[in-house]
Design a protein around this nucleic acid. Structure first.
Lengths: 215, 215
DNA sequence: CCACGCACTAGCCAAGTGGCTAATCCATAT
DNA sequence: ATATGGATTAGCCACTTGGCTAGTGCGTGG
């Protein structure tokens, strides 16, 4: 990829050594230009406003203002500046929050020089890069714990589905060609299995746990 | 990475040429062994049961049984067999469904030989690999359109939050040190703003849209 | 044949729900 | 001071909800 455009990079990390290391690595490439360094989130936000970098390498854990807040602020104020989270944590929550804040990449500090360079170039083109660990976190976050079925029988799930849609017992009865009494019976059974007292709670759990889907 | 263990791979794709191509590429590496080919999902499931491959390269669009269904069946019956989706589609929905079905990787068919090999090795170790486009799809899926607020006022959100927790009007009244009448007033207002008729529906929407979070 | 369990139905009752109307208190705008 | 509007409260009424008790058919196994 012979892209001769120089990518202007800013580093935000509260550890001198880390900034030093990254700065050194950036200097090894002729398509990167390190234009600024911030030692906390607030500083990063201000420097971005001033220098308008193409890409920010953002640590998550920093004093004064953390990386998530800074990312959010930057992405909001300067949508053309891409943020790559560069951290040593790869718990689900961090990945989640970082990307939610608007980061386009999530790398671990043990990433190879090669990976980091590619991630920066990808980010500059608006393409995402996730470390395998981060991808894993995203995936496993999405793949809910294997649907705690609550031992609901088919009919009960059928009724619960209609409850979630907001139907009341008479409506459900008609929809399933059953009597209201029967529906009440099933609803009671569902409530007891979900260990709640009202249909509203049952619906809340059903949606929350992905037991059934709306519409 | 001096792993001398041979990774047993199975291909599932309905196009001969594609299978041919992948087979050729696999032969170029001495740590891969192509142990079977399937031309549809059903065949893939059966072959997996018989051959117990380490990794399956799975196309999504196939006759008889599609890749998602096959992935689901395979992951359920043989958790040790990892599935990598290998397709030309990278719309959000496909990525979503593929990973939901239990795939550990999602690659596009234009991936480089190098990427593909790495993805297979990663999958074998239980590590995820996502093509940038797939990562992008996951991320943008996660970044919901900025929560349609429904113009709920603070008090209303407060009440809605308690409704979501399953509290009834008297409970909410006590909890907020207001009268039942007032709570009823707010509930009515919420129902009207959410354009629904029952609190159950309101709670369903609230959870579904992430208006408020449970507990 | 009969007991047993399962799916389904009826009806009663206390409590909760939601639409309505009306009223009070209070701060700000006129 | 007067009016306008937001927040709060009361009370009425028809309807829904959920717990309970008490059934009725129906198929399976003994």
């Amino acid at each position: 990829m012979a892209d001769k455009t120089i990518i202007r990079v800013l580093i935000a990390d509260d550890h001198n050594v880390v900034r030093e290391g990254i700065a050194g690595f950036l200097r090894a490439f002729d398509d990167f230009s390190l234009i600024g360094e911030a030692s906390n989130g607030k500083e990063a936000v201000m420097l971005v406003a001033e220098l308008k970098p193409d890409v920010v390498l953002m640590d998550l854990v920093m004093p004064i203002m953390d990386g998530v807040a800074a990312t959010q602020a930057i992405r909001q104020a300067h949508p053309t500046t891409q943020v790559i989270i560069l951290t040593s944590f790869h718990d689900e929550d961090s990945v989640q929050k970082g990307l939610q804040a608007g980061a386009i990449g999530y790398l671990l500090k043990n990433a190879s020089i090669h990976d980091m360079a590619n991630a920066i170039r990808a980010a500059h083109q608006g393409k995402a890069t996730l470390a395998p660990e981060a991808a894993q976190a995203l995936i496993s976050a999405r793949i809910r714990p294997p649907a705690p079925n609550f031992n609901l029988k088919d009919r009960e799930i059928e009724v619960l589905t209609l409850m979630v849609k907001g139907m009341n017992n008479p409506d459900i009865a008609e929809h399933l060609s059953l009597s209201r009494s029967t529906i009440k019976f099933y609803v009671s059974s569902i409530l007891s299995k979900l260990n709640v007292e009202t249909r509203t709670e049952a619906v809340a759990i059903a949606i929350d746990q992905g037991l059934v889907s709306r519409e």
